[in-house]
C-alpha cells in the first residue's frame, strides 16, 4: 500500500505537469476573442461594490479565421488542462487514501503527509470554484504551477516512510485540529493564486506593461479575481480560527497550557493576525484593494513559514515533522 501511494504521488506530479503545460498552451494561444466571448461572466462581482473591470483587453480585430482557429485550439487546450487537473487530483486523492490505509490512520502525521493533504484540498477546492465559475479557468496555470512545486517538494525533500503516530498526537483532538488546519490551509493556498493574479492583473489594467504585469494580459478581470480572493479567505478564516482554538484545547490536555508561544503557535498567531488584518483592510473603504490583497499574500507567506520554516529551523513541542 505504501509503495502504491508513493507511485500515485509520482503520477500525480506528472499529471499536474501535463495540466500546467496545457494551460500554458491555452495561454499562449489565447486571443481576445476568447475573452470577449464571455464578458458577462468575467465581470461578475463588479456589479455591486467593485470597480468596473470592463476594459477591453485587446483590440478585438474583426475575426480573422486564424484568430478563430487559435481561439478554438486555446479553448481545447484549456479543457484538456482542466481534465488532466481533475485526473491528477484523483491520483493525488488515491495516494492519500492508500497512505492512510498503510499507516492505519489519517494521513496527517508528518510534514510530508501534511503538505500532500493541504495541496489536495487546494486542488479540490479549485475544481469546485472552476465548476461554479468556468470563466476563471486561466488561473489554472498558476494553480498547477503551485501544485507541481508543492507536491514535488513533498516527494523530493520531505518524504518519510509510513510510521504510526507518537502518543502526543494520538488523540481525537488530533483529527479535529489537524483536519481543520489542513482544510483551511488548502483554501488559503488556493486563495493566494487569485490574490497574486489580481495584483498582476490590476497593474495591467492600470496600464502597466512591464514584466510581471504583462503575464496578466489574458487573466480574468481584476474585479473578479479580487472577489474570488476575498470569498476564499472569508471562507477559510473562520475554519482556521476554529483550528487554532481546537489546537489550544488539545495543547491544554497534552501539555498543560492552552497557549505557550511555542514557535508553531507563534506563527499561527502571526498568520491569524495578518489574515484578520486582510479582512479589516478589505472592509475599510479608505484602504486600497491592492494593499489589502498584499496582506493576503503576506498571510500566505506566514502560513508557508509555519508549514516549512518552523519544522526545519526551530525546535519546539510541535517538532514532529519527521525530519532529522
Amino acid at each position: 500500500m505504501s509503495a502504491l501511494s508513493d507511485q500515485l504521488v509520482s503520477f500525480a506530479i506528472l499529471a499536474y505537469l501535463v495540466a500546467m503545460i496545457s494551460h500554458a498552451v491555452e495561454y499562449a494561444l489565447g486571443n481576445a476573442r476568447a475573452q470577449v466571448a464571455t464578458p458577462a461572466r468575467e465581470l461578475v462581482g463588479a456589479g455591486v461594490g467593485g470597480a468596473g473591470g470592463s476594459l477591453p483587453a485587446e483590440p478585438a480585430v474583426a475575426g480573422t479565421t486564424a484568430a478563430g482557429r487559435s481561439g478554438h485550439r486555446a479553448r481545447l487546450a484549456g479543457r484538456i488542462a482542466v481534465g488532466v487537473t481533475a485526473l491528477a487530483a484523483l491520483l493525488h486523492f488515491g495516494a492519500l487514501v492508500t497512505r492512510g490505509i498503510a499507516a492505519d490512520r489519517m494521513p496527517w502525521g508528518n510534514m510530508y503527509e501534511f503538505v500532500l493533504t493541504v495541496s489536495f484540498i487546494g486542488v479540490a477546492a479549485w475544481l469546485v470554484v472552476l465548476w461554479r465559475k468556468p470563466s476563471l479557468r486561466r488561473l489554472g496555470l498558476f494553480l498547477t504551477l503551485v501544485m507541481v512545486l508543492l507536491v514535488a517538494t513533498a516527494e523530493l525533500v520531505l518524504y518519510v516512510p509510513v510510521v504510526p503516530l507518537v502518543p502526543a498526537l494520538n488523540s481525537y483532538w488530533f483529527v479535529i485540529h489537524v483536519s481543520t488546519v489542513v482544510f483551511s490551509s488548502g483554501i488559503f493556498l488556493l486563495g493566494v493564486v487569485p490574490a497574486v493574479a489580481y495584483l498582476m492583473r490590476a497593474g495591467y489594467e492600470r496600464g502597466r506593461r512591464s514584466f510581471p504585469y504583462t503575464l496578466a494580459k489574458r487573466l480574468p478581470a481584476a474585479a473578479a479575481l479580487e472577489r474570488l480572493t476575498f470569498v476564499l479567505h472569508a471562507f477559510a478564516f473562520p475554519i482556521f480560527t476554529f483550528a487554532v482554538i481546537a489546537g489550544a484545547i488539545w495543547a491544554e490536555a497534552a501539555w498543560g497550557r492552552p497557549w505557550g508561544w511555542d514557535p508553531k503557535e507563534t506563527w499561527s498567531f502571526i498568520s491569524w493576525v495578518i489574515y484578520a488584518g486582510y479582512l479589516h483592510a478589505r472592509a475599510t473603504p479608505s484602504v486600497r484593494r491592492n494593499v489589502a490583497t498584499w496582506l493576503a499574500v503576506v498571510g500566505f507567506c506566514t502560513m508557508l513559514m509555519n508549514l516549512f520554516g518552523v519544522n526545519i529551523f526551530f525546535e519546539g513541542l510541535h517538532s514532529y515533522g519527521g525530519l532529522d
Binding site: 508561544w261 506563527w267 484602504v287
Partner: peptide, 20 residues
Amino acid sequence: SMRTALVLLFLLAVAAIPGS
C-alpha cells in the same frame, strides 16, 4: 479608527516574530 486598528494588527504580527 479602522486604519489604526489595521496598523496595530500588523505591528502585533511583526512584534511576535522575535519571540519565535
